[in-house]
Amino acid sequence: MSLSTPPDDPTRPGAGVLETRLIDIDREKFAREFWGQTALLTRGAGDFSDLFSAEAVDELISRRGLRTPFLRVAKEGTTFPDSSFTAPAGVGATISDQLDDTALWRKFADGATLVLQALHRTWEPIAEFNARLSTELGHPVQANAYITPPQNRGFDDHYDVHDVFVLQIEGTKRWIIHEPVLPDPLRDQVWTDRRAAVADAAKGEAYIDTLLGPGDVLYLPRGWLHAAQAQGEVSIHLTLGIHSWTRYALAEQLVQAALALLRDDPEMRRTLPLGVDGPAGEVDVVRKRLAAAVADADAASLFHRTRRGQGRPAPLGPLAQLAAVQGLGPESVVRLRGALDARLEGSRLSTRVGWLDFPETDLPSVRRLLDGEAGTANDLGNGLVERLLRAGVLVPADP
């Protein structure tokens, strides 16, 4: 078991949410010794009530009109069908798959775990936290909450195909962790395909067997086996899932870029010979040309485009944005919209909301905005600011 120790200066300037909220070692040590390698248990990382709480659970389930798949329900390894806890919401909202709070109460009272999924889309404090963490890690982050009644568990021993940070919010939960049966599984190498191996490994000596209490954080790389059971009171924990980019994923991007080059190769578009008996000779030709295309391919743009597609920009209020456009004046202060994953390549700005080309005269102002600076329309250029406001790239800066 790896239990972290405090760094010399955990509050040093510039530390992000990884260091200030999730671990009590410095980022470099975490990256060197734990990231993608082994489990890390951090006691008393902090108070997470600003992110989530029991009151948040009740509000989301009973007042927000959530639909599936924003919630799953499970008990002792069995996931209930959506139809067992959803219903139409009445006049004016007759969508059939909205959460039925009465049905959910009955299942919860009978020992079922409630799983609020994709909280980075439905709960603002978590959305903001996730966006910051994703930016720091360079990998997409999702957030689920698990609400388990006393002395119950929702899922059997299993592993995830993404890394996780487990943040205990309320109550206590016993976590039993075992080392992987398949290190670093890819997205399609799910635990159910190795159910017998997982069950056998779970019978062995645990790597970690501990109680998590409020404020504790557990980091697990993908592939690490785990099961958890609530103790004498309701347990609420957040799981932050890190959907890590891998070398295999980069290889996929590189091959796609190479194939795009081969589309323009007349020899590769030719029909195979008539009556060819087996493709052996042709495979050798293709292999050589494919290898050459891989050597010439630039997968960077494809990688960044794919990465942008895995996240969403910060929220944009249409009425506030319209007011900003209509009220634009020389002293209006604007900034880059958050979580755009903006990238300037030559004179083209690519973001999660599209791309824009700029004349050379605008590029200094664009670079200034990408560096995180706020500026006035007068300094940046009124025409540029209006264009970027209308495109949803800029937003009014906080007063």
Rank of each mutant, 00 (worst) to 15 (best):
S2T: 09
G16F: 00
I25W: 00
R32T: 14
L40G: 09
L41W: 14
R43A: 06
G46L: 10
S53F: 07
E55S: 14
I61W: 05
I61Q: 09
L66C: 03
D82L: 06
S83D: 06
G90S: 05
A93T: 00
I95A: 05
T102D: 15
A103M: 04
A103Y: 01
L104C: 10
T113N: 11
L116G: 12
R132T: 02
E136C: 12
P140Y: 02
P150E: 04
G154V: 08
V161Q: 11
H162D: 05
V164K: 09
V164A: 12
I177W: 02
H178G: 03
L182V: 15
D188L: 06
V190Q: 09
G204E: 13
P214A: 01
G215D: 07
V217S: 08
L218R: 05
Y219R: 08
G223I: 04
I236W: 07
I236D: 07
G241T: 07
I242F: 13
W245G: 05
T246K: 00
V255D: 10
A260E: 15
E267Y: 09
D277E: 11
A280F: 01
L290R: 00
L290D: 03
R312D: 13
P313D: 08
P313A: 08
A314E: 10
L316E: 08
L319T: 14
A323S: 06
V325C: 07
P330C: 07
L336H: 07
G338L: 11
A342V: 09
R390D: 02
P399I: 00
